[in-house]
């Protein structure tokens, strides 16, 4: 995700469902409005779970990218 400045990132690899989602929720809660936060998850389910939560909470999913090794970086903007 070029051009996006991530304010805070948490590496949740090694954490099991729903750990990475809980980490994303904590990050977003502690962030300021406008901040972009990211979680790196090695849990396959997170790729569906975290976007579903972002959608439900009406935040903005900036994107997902493979973050080597064995993790996906899921990026969210706290837009309200």
């Amino acid at each position: 995700m070029e051009g996006v400045k991530i304010t805070k990132e948490s590496d949740a690899r090694g954490s099991f469902c729903p750990g990475p989602l809980m980490e994303m929720i904590r990050l977003v809660r502690s962030a300021n409005v406008g901040d972009v936060v990211a979680v790196i998850s090695g849990d396959e389910g997170s790729k569906k779970d975290i976007p579903a939560w972002i959608n439900k909470a009406r935040y903005e999913l900036i994107g997902m990218e493979e973050a080597a090794p064995g993790g996906t970086r899921i990026i969210c903007r706290k837009n309200h």
């Binding site: 469902c17 729903p18 989602l21 809980m22 929720i25 779970d49 579903a52 939560w53 439900k56 909470a57």
Partner: peptide, 11 residues
Amino acid sequence: SIIASGAAAMQ
């Protein structure tokens, strides 16, 4: 506990 977490996350 996991179902409760998912449900809590989904408000």
